[in-house]
């Protein structure tokens, strides 16, 4: 069986695409898993996106806690005899899959966007060394646990006529010694850099928080309206909220145009934007690393370059 689980249903839709492919190749059924309250309409939706069956693991736990959800999921694995487990790669999903790997002594590959079967073995590829290489990994044992990031795959076409079975079962799990005291929304300006087509990013080359306006203006005339930033701007200076942060420990983006202003181009920043279509760099240091990763660049003071660029783009676009 191929199991698919995430607390984010969009991710489940996307993963079902891969699951169906893997299921076809190994002649195994695809089971989408719901943990928590029984939700039959969601279950039917999973079926219409490709699941053969849906397993609803009913629990009394109100919120996600890795220890408890791992315990539940391991019981679902046992119950269904699953040998391939696909988990959505958000933060909950990652800590869940690694702990599951621990207690099942099973292999786990995090953040894979290419999964295939060769000679009856499951292979998964993932980006390593800050985007400088792709590791080809082979599972030697079962079950195989793989987490899949958002947007790695498109969902299959929805087919409301597909039929599938829905199994409900109450699953008891051991209560964790830890408890959640509070959940607060992380400060966010509601931008979604992952979906953006054009991103203008700022780095430490900016001297004051107010100067970010320059980037906003350029993003506006480009109709991209999306501002990104390097780690120091979000993490250290806190001039922008973390939803703007691009890089290894921030968001991974692939807009058709990425403009980096006052960003040095350290490998950890590149890791987040290397898949962009066209990359433009603005930096006063002709030796800056960012120029090596750029299609076009202007060597100059961003305080002079950006206003001129904004005006020129405005004129060009009419």
């Amino acid at each position: 069986m191929v199991l698919v689980y995430s607390d984010n249903k969009k991710l489940v839709f996307e993963m079902l695409n891969v699951a169906v492919e893997l299921g076809k190749n190994t002649k195994k059924e695809v089971i989408a898993v719901i943990i928590g309250k029984s939700d039959e309409s969601l279950a039917r939706e999973y079926i219409s996106y490709g699941a053969d069956n849906v397993f609803i693991a009913e629990t009394n736990f109100e919120t996600f806690k890795a220890e408890e959800y791992t315990d539940i999921l391991s019981k679902v694995v046992e119950e269904t005899g699953a040998d391939t487990i696909l988990i959505g790669s958000n933060k909950n999903g990652k800590e869940l899959s690694a702990r599951l790997g621990g207690i099942l002594n099973a292999g786990c590959v995090v953040d894979s966007n290419n999964i295939y079967i060769k000679d009856n073995n499951i292979f998964a590829e993932r980006v390593v060394y800050s985007g400088n290489a792709i590791a080809i990994l082979k599972f030697n044992s079962k079950p195989a646990i793989i987490t899949i990031p958002p947007k790695a795959f498109d969902p299959l076409k929805k087919d409301e006529k597909r039929k599938g079975e829905i199994t409900k079962k109450k699953i008891e799990a051991e209560k964790s010694q830890s408890k959640i005291l509070k959940v607060q929304e992380l400060k966010s300006e509601g931008v979604n850099v992952e979906d953006a087509e054009i991103i203008v990013s700022c780095g430490r080359g900016f001297k004051n928080k107010e100067d970010i306006k320059l980037v906003n203006d350029l993003a506006d005339v480009l109709k991209g309206k999306t501002v990104g930033c390097s780690r120091p701007i979000a993490a250290d200076l806190k001039w922008l909220s973390e939803d703007h942060w691009i890089g290894l420990s921030g968001h991974k983006v692939k807009p058709k145009l990425y403009i980096a202003a006052g960003i040095s181009g350290q490998i950890q920043h590149i890791a987040g934007m290397r898949d962009s279509g066209i990359i433009v760099a603005i930096n006063k240091d002709p030796e800056a690393l960012i120029f090596k990763s750029a299609d076009y660049g202007i060597v100059g003071d961003l305080y002079e370059v950006i206003p001129k660029l904004t005006a020129a783009v405005k004129e060009k676009m009419g």
């Binding site: 002594n105 099973a106 292999g107 786990c108 590959v109 292979f123 590829e125 980006v127 390593v128 985007g131 400088n132 290489a133 792709i134 590791a135 080809i136 990994l137 082979k138 599972f139 030697n140 044992s141 590149i270 290397r274 090596k292 990763s293």
Partner: peptide, 12 residues
């Protein structure tokens, strides 16, 4: 349980 078979280069 997981073996690294190869490291592919990524051209930038």
């Amino acid at each position: 349980v997981v073996e690294t078979i190869d490291l592919k280069g990524v051209s930038m």
